[in-house]
Design a protein around this nucleic acid. Structure first.
Length: 302
DNA sequence: TTTCAGGTGGTGC
DNA sequence: GCACCACCTGAA
C-alpha cells in the first residue's frame, strides 16, 4: 500500500500567514476576473478563492459592496498571504488595479452596440498579469483543449515538478515549476495526466529555453507583431497561443487572441467569415485585448 | 461507441 | 498564401 501521499501531506508545515491586504476598487470583480478564461489555478471553496502565486498562497474573499448613485460599484476584498511574502504592490500589479478601466471601458463601449453590451455584462473583469513561464507553458497546453483539462494538466505538472507550499483546504498546493525544475525532465517524465501530444511541445520549449540565449523578457522590448513571431519559435505556439501569452503575461493590449469561439462571435456579430485577423486589426483599434476579453466573456457566459 | 474540445504544424496545391 | 488533417485524452 502506498501511504506516501498522505504522509507527505501531514509532513507539510502549516502555512503561516504573512499579511492581510485590503483592496477597495471600482471596476474590479474578482470572480469574473478569475473565471473569464485567463487564469487556470484559482479554486473556489465557499466564498473564498485561493491559489498559489509564485511561492505564496493567496486566499481572497469579498467583504463588501457599496453602490453609489451612479450604480458604480466599489468592491472590497481581503487577501490573506501565506508562505512567501506577496506585497500589496505585487497584488495590484497582478490584478492590474492601477489602470483606469473607467475610461478604457468607456472608449471600448463607444465602438458599437455589441461592445457596449459586452462591457455592461462583463464589468469588473481585469486583464491579469501572470508569470511569463507560467503563461507560456499553460497556453502551450491549452491548444485543442478545454479549461477543465488544461487545469488538470497544469496541476499535475505543478505537483510533479513544482515545490510543495503547504496545505490549504485539505489539499497540498504547489508552485508552478521553473524552467530549471523542468530541465532534467525527459519527454517521458513530462507525460503527466491528460497532456497527450502536447508533452512534445513542452519538452521542445524547455529545451529551447535551456539551450539558447533566448530571453523571455524580449517581447517587452519588441512591437506586438514582432513579439508574436518571436513567441512562435516555441513549438506549440501559433497565433492564438502567442496572443494569449502576450495579453495575459506581458500586458500587451494589442494582442487579440482569435480562437474558435471568437471566430464564431466575429461571424455572428460582425459577419466576418474569413481573414479574421485582418478585420480585428482594422476594427478593434482601442485596447483590442481588453475588448476581446469582454466579448469573449459575453459570448461564453452571456 | 462516437464526437467534440479555448490550435498547431506539416503537407499539398 | 490557403485548405486540409492528424493529434492525446476526458467528458457527454
Amino acid at each position: 500500500m502506498d501511504f506516501r501521499k498522505s504522509d507527505l501531506k501531514t509532513e507539510h508545515k502549516k502555512l503561516e500567514k504573512i499579511r492581510e491586504i485590503h483592496i477597495e476598487s471600482t471596476y474590479f470583480d474578482l470572480e469574473k476576473t478569475l473565471y473569464c478564461g485567463q487564469a487556470f489555478r484559482w479554486r473556489k471553496a465557499g466564498d473564498v478563492f485561493y491559489a498559489p502565486i509564485d511561492h505564496s498562497v493567496v486566499v481572497a474573499r469579498k467583504t463588501a459592496v457599496t453602490s453609489t448613485i451612479q450604480t458604480n460599484k466599489t468592491e472590497s476584498y481581503i487577501f490573506e498571504i501565506y508562505g512567501d511574502d506577496f506585497t500589496k504592490e505585487q497584488l495590484i500589479t497582478y490584478f492590474d488595479l492601477n489602470r483606469d478601466y473607467a475610461s478604457i471601458l468607456e472608449e471600448i463601449s463607444g465602438i458599437d452596440e455589441h461592445l457596449k453590451a459586452a462591457v455592461l455584462y462583463g464589468k469588473g473583469i481585469r486583464i491579469m498579469r501572470q508569470g511569463l513561464v507560467e503563461m507560456l507553458i499553460t497556453f502551450i497546453l491549452s491548444s485543442n483543449n478545454n479549461i477543465p483539462k488544461i487545469s488538470m494538466t497544469v496541476e499535475a505538472l505543478c505537483e510533479k515538478f513544482g515545490d510543495a507550499l503547504g496545505v490549504y483546504n485539505g489539499e497540498v498546493l504547489y508552485s508552478f515549476p521553473t524552467i530549471a525544475q523542468l530541465s532534467d525532465a525527459s519527454l517521458e517524465d513530462l507525460n503527466v495526466k491528460a497532456i497527450g501530444y502536447r508533452a512534445k511541445s513542452l519538452y521542445a520549449t524547455v529545451q529551447l529555453l535551456l539551450n539558447s540565449q533566448l530571453d523571455l523578457n524580449e517581447p517587452f522590448r519588441l512591437s506586438h507583431h514582432t513579439s508574436v513571431e518571436w513567441l512562435k519559435q516555441f513549438h506549440g505556439v501559433g497565433n492564438k497561443v502567442a496572443n494569449c501569452i502576450l495579453l495575459f503575461a506581458y500586458g500587451d493590449y494589442e494582442a487579440f487572441p482569435v480562437d474558435t469561439w471568437v471566430k464564431r462571435m466575429l461571424n455572428e456579430l460582425y459577419g466576418v467569415e474569413k481573414k479574421h485577423e485582418a478585420f480585428v486589426e482594422s476594427y478593434f483599434t482601442k485596447f483590442p485585448g481588453i475588448a476581446q476579453q469582454y466579448l469573449f466573456y459575453y459570448i461564453r457566459k452571456g
